[in-house]
Every structure is written in C-alpha cells, then in structure tokens.
C-alpha cells in the first residue's frame, strides 16, 4: 500500500483499498490500513529514505482514494457536523477520516479542509448551523491558535458542541482542552464511541 501511495499509483492503491472496503468496516479500513500506510510514509522520511516531495505525493494519492471510498449515500439522521483545521495546519487526513465516520453514522458532514482562513470558517459555520464543530491540529505550536478559535466559537456560538482531534490531543493530553461542551478525541475509535453515545442519548 505504502509503495503505491509513494509512486502515486492511485488506481492500484484504490483497487487494494476497495477490496478491504467490501470486507471490513470503514473504521477498520482507516485505522488498520490507511493510517499505518501513512505512518510508514512518515517513518521513511524520518529515516531519510524519502523526501518531502514523495510524502506530498503519497498524501495527495491517499486523499484522492479516501474521497472515492467516502460513504455518500445512506439514511440521514438529520444532524450536521463541520470539520476544519486550525489556520495554517496542513495535516488533514485524520480529520477527513473523522468526517467519514460521521457520514457513516448518518450525519451530514461538511469538510472544509486545510488552509481555510478563520473568518471564512466562521461564515460557513453560521450558514451551515452544525450540531457539532470538529477542529484538528497536529503541531504543538498551534496550541494558542486552537485556544483562540475555541474562544471565538464560544463567544459567537455559545453552547455549541466542539470536538478536538489530531496529534495535538495526543501530545498535549486531554486536560488542556476538556471543559464544558469541548471534548477531545484521541482516535477514530473514540470518535465512533462518542457518536454511539450520542445516538443512544448518553451525550450532547
């Protein structure tokens, strides 16, 4: 899988993934196949065997495949969630996976992706009126920006439910963020569990 991603051979990679999609749940495909493949790409850069350019090609290929396997049709539960990275954060694959996990559960997910300026994000949120706002960041120097956007959201949309994910949660622990209406998601499994709890009325 990593080989196909690094070579940009999207058709081969897609065939491989689609075989798994038929046999396993989306969560398993993401956590057991795509994520390890992309971690391996990261390791190859760490060990000086590939360049950043190779890494970007692998990311783009992976992104393309994820778009194609994204669950689009299903029964809607009438709930909406919006997903975006804090400003300038480029690591977006994990967030995209989370959006798909929401879709699989019948939510309408709107993925704003990376590089979207805060004012545009806020505009979108006000128009879309989501039930849940999901924010992701990887690098620790995004911590101030993450706090900033949470504060802005709390002021502009008091009472809205905010979920935080990405490596920032792993590196900074849960306590940095956990407060009323803000929940941290340490993995996709945690996202799935949270959604399950909402469905059964134990959350939100």
């Amino acid at each position: 899988m990593t080989g196909y991603l690094l070579e940009g051979e999207e058709q081969e990679a897609l065939q491989l993934v689609q075989k798994w999609v038929g046999e396993r749940s989306l969560l398993e495909v993401h956590e057991e196949i795509i994520t390890p493949a992309m971690y391996h790409v990261g390791e190859l850069w760490q060990t000086n065997r590939i360049s950043v350019a190779d890494e970007h090609l692998a990311t783009a290929t992976c992104d393309y495949i994820m778009t194609l396997i994204s669950p689009r049709k299903g029964t809607s539960n009438g709930k909406k969630a919006i997903f975006f990275n804090v400003e300038e954060e480029e690591h977006h694959l994990g967030l995209k996976m989370a959006a798909d996990i929401f879709r699989e559960e019948g939510w309408e997910s709107r993925f704003l992706g990376t590089g979207v300026p805060d004012d545009h994000v806020l505009q979108q949120i006000e128009k879309f009126c989501p039930d849940v706002i999901c924010i992701s960041a990887a690098l620790s120097y995004r911590v101030p920006e993450m706090h900033n956007i949470i504060d802005v959201l709390k002021k502009r949309m008091p009472g809205s439910v905010i979920l935080i994910g990405g490596r920032i949660v792993k590196n900074h622990g849960m306590n940095e963020w956990n407060e009323a209406h803000v929940h941290t998601m340490s993995s996709l499994t945690a996202v799935k569990e949270w959604l399950q709890n909402v469905k059964e009325g134990r959350r939100q």
Binding site: W45, T47, L139
Partner: peptide
C-alpha cells in the same frame, strides 16, 4: 521544527 526534531536527533 518540532516535526523534524526526532529525525534531526538521529541524523
């Protein structure tokens, strides 16, 4: 940079 630190430590 933070994301490069482990790699730099090794190399």
């Amino acid at each position: 940079d933070e994301g490069t630190y482990d790699k730099a430590r090794e190399w």
